[in-house]
């Protein structure tokens, strides 16, 4: 018996080590999905401002930074896991990992470091309830949505949308060390807003998702069923968007903006439902996608300004 290798080791079979990193600072910033982060910051800020006073403003600002970094970290982990499908979709092919500017391992290490760092720092700065909710949000987005739902079911963004909807609750918890009906309602609004928002984009980019093998509703059930679902979600979202004015959260400005915005949202969804062929259908979907962004930003900023200006909530007594 010999312990020596009889055959020389085939070093040529080992995978080549990656060369020196070509990643620029802007590539690492792109991993954080800054546009998604801006919505997270705004919605978390609304949750914080609407919450009862409980944290020094400086600690509140640092908590908001932690929530933003946590959201960015989950974006980096999403790009690490999804690099294969990002590479075949025109919309995402230029992202740092599929484009080869950032190695997958670098994105993983970056995302994990920021995830752990943001959760622990939020726990130390604010409280462990908020930190736990942030950890749950990152876990839900990366593991439940990215690794599991996205490639498995056309309901991927419906269920996965919970991760994107959580920031107001995390922000509220950071300030008040509690969760509340008000913060749950804000989560519900963003949760119901996500499907029509993304499906409008899918109607335009359906070929992209089909090529990548992602079972989006447009690919699995077809554009007509997607249009029907968009309309149903819009009809549910419009009254839900107004609801904060009925539970002592929103004031008259919010009531007016959410009512007008909700009606316009439904009108855009009806246009998408009715225009099913050619360029008019494409334009209708594009307009709904654009308006959905304006709608959510309008609702959140209305609440933000009302709270900052000290305007009272609508009283129905």
């Amino acid at each position: 018996m010999s312990f020596a290798h009889d055959e020389p080791i085939e070093t040529g079979a080992l995978p080549a080590l990656p060369g020196p990193s070509l990643a620029g600072v802007e590539d690492y910033l792109a991993l954080l999905k800054p546009r998604v982060m801006s919505l997270v910051v705004l919605s978390a800020l609304v949750g914080m401002v609407a919450a009862p006073e409980g944290l020094h403003p400086v600690l509140g600002a640092i908590s908001l930074l932690c929530i933003a970094i946590g959201a960015g970290a989950s974006g980096a982990l999403n790009m690490w896991w999804d690099a294969d499908i990002d590479a075949v979709m025109a919309r995402t092919a230029t992202r740092p990992v599929p484009a080869g500017r950032v190695q997958p391992g670098e994105a993983l290490a970056f995302g994990m470091t920021l995830s752990v760092g943001s959760v622990l720092t939020l726990g130390l700065v604010a409280n462990w309830l908020a930190a736990g909710l942030l950890a749950f949000t990152i876990f839900f987005y990366v593991v439940v949505y990215t690794m599991w739902l996205k490639r498995w079911t056309p309901q991927n963004i419906v269920i996965g949308g919970l991760a994107g909807a959580m920031p107001p609750m995390v922000g509220w918890a950071a300030m008040a060390n509690a969760v509340s009906l008000e913060s749950a309602l804000l989560v519900a609004i963003i949760f119901m807003w996500t499907p029509p928002h993304f499906w409008a984009l899918c109607l335009i980019k359906s070929d992209d998702y089909a090529r990548a093998g992602v079972p989006m509703l447009t690919v699995v059930a077809g554009p007509d069923e997607t249009r029907r679902q968009i309309l149903l979600y819009a009809l549910a979202l419009a009254p839900l968007g107004v609801a904060p004015a009925f539970i002592g959260l929103g004031g008259w400005a919010y009531l007016a903006i959410s009512t007008a915005g909700g009606l316009a949202f439904v009108a855009h969804a009806v246009a998408v439902y009715r225009r099913r062929e050619g360029e008019p259908a494409r334009k209708a979907a594009g307009r709904l996608f654009g308006f959905s962004l304006i709608y959510l930003f309008a609702l959140l900023t209305a609440l933000l300004f009302e709270k900052l200006a000290g305007l009272p909530a609508v009283s129905w007594a």
Partner: peptide, 18 residues
């Protein structure tokens, strides 16, 4: 050993500063 190109050196310096 590995010799970095001027572009790689510039990117590394920018990463270090960040």
């Amino acid at each position: 050993g590995v010799v970095l190109t001027p572009e790689q050196k510039r990117q590394r310096n920018r990463r270090n500063v960040a």
